[in-house]
Design a protein around this nucleic acid. Structure first.
Lengths: 345, 345
DNA sequence: TTTTAGCACTCTCACACCGAGAGTGCTAAA
DNA sequence: TTTAGCACTCTCGGTGTGAGAGTGCTAAAA
C-alpha cells in the first residue's frame, strides 16, 4: 500500500515534527533528510500521504502534521525494530534503587520519579493489591443518584468500604440483584482470586448478555481496584512542554489523572489484555480527556505473572523512541528485580 | 490608624475586587456601595489607602487592587466577626457521610471532594498517622547528594523506610552525628510520642543553637510525616478560575502540591502552631510557589486533641467569606463526629 | 514516465497604529 | 471638607499591512 519511498518520507516527517513541533514542509525534508529528491517530488508524495490519511495540513500555506494514523504507522515501525535498552539510564536507576530493592513501593516511587524527570512526561505506575484476604460477603448500597457504597466483609469479620461514582443511576432493586449475583459468584474467594475471576468474565464478555450483570462486575472490579498502589510523578513538568501553550488540554489531562479510577482502570486493563509494550495514541484511548495525549506503557512481571504496569503519558507528538526504550528498560529492570528477590517487601 | 470611613471603603474595594476580579475604581464604589460620598472623595481616600500599602494600581489609569496587606485587613475583619455556619452545606454533607461515619479515610475523602466541588478551589485534608509503633532504632543513610534514606526499626523488628529529598547536601559524617543524636533522643518512643517530642523541640526552637541538630530533627519529622494520609481534590477546577488565564501560576501550584512533603509540612505545622482557623495570604506562605495563592485552613480535633487539618487553596482574591465559613463548618463537623464516635475506624 | 524548476497563490503572524473607554490627580468652587 | 470639572494617561480591541513560508500546478527536463 505504501511504497518504500513514501514510508521513509512519512517517517521523516513524523520524526521532524516530533523534534521541532512545527508543521513540516517539503523543503525541509528535502534538505535535512535529502533523499536525493527535490522538494517538489517530496511535495507530491506528501500530498499522497495526506490523501491516505497519514498527514494533514492545519491550513493551506502551512507544512504538514502527522495524523493519529501517521503516528501509529511511525510507532508500529519503531516497535517492530530491535529495541535498544537504555543502559546508562538503567545503571543510574539501579544505583539509586540499590538500598531499597526489597521495597516495591519505594522502588516504584523512585522509578516513576526518575522516569518523569528524564522525559518530562507524566509517569504513572500501578501495583495491584494482591490480597489474600477472603471476602465473605459483599454489600452494595445506594448513597445518592451518582454514588454507591461497597461493603466487603472479610472472613475475619472486618469490613472494607469503597465509594464509587457511577455515571448512569441504578435503582435499589437493580443494586439488590447485582449484589445477589456478585455474592453468588465471588463470595468465599480471596481478592486475588476474585480479580482473576473478573478478568476471565470480562475477556469472554461478549457471551454475557445481561447488561446489569456486566455492569455490576465492572463496578466490583473498580471497587477492588482502589486498594492498588498508584504512583504519579511529573505533573508539573507537562506544563513546560511547548505543546501545551494552550491551557485547556492540560486541564483535561489533569482532570483525567485526578480521577484515579480512570487511570487505575486503564493500567489494570493493560495488565490483563496486553503482554509487554503497548502504545496508545490520541484517539485510541478510551478516556476522552486523553485524546490529545499518548501513552507508552508496559506491564512488569513477577515470576512470569503480570504484577503491575508502568507508563509514560505525554503529548501525541512525544518522543516515542525515547519513551518506548525508557519504559521498556524500566519494566524489564523491575521484572528482573522482582523475580530475583526472595519475597515481597 | 484607619478611620471608620477608610475601613469601610477598603473593605468595599476588597469585596468588589473579589467579586468582579477587575481593578476597582472610585466611581464604582461610589455607585454600588454609595456611602453618600462622591467618587472624588472616595478617590482621595483610596489614594490614602494606597500610600498606606493597602491598595495598589497596576497602572495609572486603572482602578485599584488590594495588596496582600489589604487582603489581610479584610480577612482579619472577617475572622473577628461572628462566623456563620453554612448549615445547608453541612446538612448535605452529613447526609452524604451517613453511612461511613466510622471511617475517617472515607469521610475525609468525601469531605474534601465536596468542598472542592462547592468552592472550585483545591481542597486538601491531612490525617496524621497516630502510630503506637515503638521505634527501636533509626538509621540515616546517604543515597545521593540530594537524597537520604531513613530506616526505622520497630520494636517488632520490622523496618520502615523513607527516602527524603534534601536541599543542602549533608556529608556522611554529619549524617552519622545526626543519627546518633536522633537515636539518643527518640529511640524507644512510639511514633506518636516522637511527634510530640519533635513538636516541643521545634516550638522552643530558638534555644537550639546547633544547626545540624535542628536540621536533623526537621528531617526526622518529615520522614515520619510520610505515612500521613493526604486527601487532595479539585485540582482541575482551579483551571477554570478566571484568575489563571496565565498558565505559569497554576504550574507553580501544581508543582507545590505535587511535592506532598511541602503540603504535609504546611498542614502539620498548622496543627501544632495554630488553634482553629488560619488564613495564609500570598506572600505570608513559606512555600514560595504559593505566593499567588491563599490558604484557608482549620484543624479538626478528636477529644480536644488536634487530629488533623483541612484547608482550601485558592487564588489570593478568593471568596474568603465563603471559604472561611465552609472550612470552619467542615472542621467543626468532623470534630463533632470524631469526638462522638467510639473509637478509630 | 518521473522528476524538477518556476511561479502565482494562500494563509499566518508579527507589528504598528488608532480611537474608545476607564480611571486618575489636580484645581477651584461649594 | 467635599464635590464638580477637566486634562491627562494608560490599556485594550480592532484594523491594516507586509514579510515569510509553504503549497499546487504547469511545463520543461531527465
Amino acid at each position: 500500500m505504501l511504497d518504500e519511498r513514501a514510508k521513509k518520507i512519512l517517517i521523516a516527517v513524523v520524526e521532524s515534527y516530533i523534534q521541532r513541533l512545527d508543521p513540516v514542509g517539503s523543503r525541509h525534508i528535502a534538505k535535512k533528510y535529502g533523499f536525493d529528491l527535490s522538494s517538489a517530488t517530496i511535495r507530491n508524495v506528501m500530498a499522497d500521504l495526506e490523501e491516505l490519511g497519514y498527514l494533514f495540513q492545519p491550513h493551506t500555506s502551512a507544512g504538514r502534521i502527522p495524523t493519529d494514523r501517521g503516528f501509529r504507522f511511525y510507532v508500529n515501525n519503531l516497535l517492530s525494530n530491535e529495541p535498544k535498552i537504555n543502559t546508562l539510564f538503567i545503571k543510574e536507576l539501579a544505583r539509586r534503587l540499590e538500598d531499597i530493592r526489597d521495597s516495591i513501593e519505594l522502588m516504584l516511587e523512585r522509578t516513576t520519579k526518575s522516569l518523569a524527570a528524564l522525559t518530562h512526561y507524566v509517569s504513572v505506575a500501578s501495583h495491584p493489591f494482591e490480597g489474600d484476604t477472603v471476602i465473605k460477603k459483599i454489600e452494595i448500597k445506594k448513597i445518592s443518584s451518582s454514588q454507591v457504597l461497597f461493603n466487603f466483609e472479610t472472613a475475619e469479620g472486618i469490613t472494607k468500604r469503597r465509594i464509587l461514582d457511577i455515571s448512569t443511576p441504578l435503582s435499589q432493586s437493580e443494586l439488590n440483584e447485582a449484589t445477589r449475583y456478585i455474592n453468588s459468584r465471588f463470595s468465599g474467594y480471596s481478592v486475588k482470586e476474585i480479580r482473576e475471576l473478573i478478568f476471565n468474565e470480562m475477556t469472554k464478555e461478549k457471551i454475557i448478555c445481561d447488561a446489569l450483570i456486566s455492569k455490576s462486575i465492572r463496578l466490583c472490579r473498580e471497587a477492588l481496584l482502589v486498594d492498588d498502589m498508584l504512583f504519579i510523578h511529573g505533573f508539573s513538568q507537562v506544563f513546560e512542554l511547548p505543546d501545551f501553550f494552550n491551557i485547556s488540554k492540560i486541564r483535561e489531562l489533569v482532570r483525567a489523572i485526578e480521577d484515579k479510577h480512570l487511570i487505575l482502570n486503564l493500567l489494570d486493563e493493560l495488565i490483563y489484555k496486553s503482554n509487554g509494550m503497548k502504545v496508545i495514541i490520541g484517539n485510541e484511548n478510551q478516556i476522552k480527556e486523553m485524546h490529545d495525549f499518548s501513552i507508552v506503557a508496559s506491564t512488569y512481571y513477577e515470576k512470569d505473572r503480570p504484577a503491575g504496569a508502568i507508563c509514560l503519558i505525554g503529548p501525541k507528538r512525544m518522543d516515542y523512541a525515547k519513551a518506548i526504550s525508557m519504559v521498556r528498560s524500566v519494566s524489564e529492570f523491575i521484572t528482573d528485580v522482582l523475580s530475583r528477590r526472595r519475597r515481597h517487601g
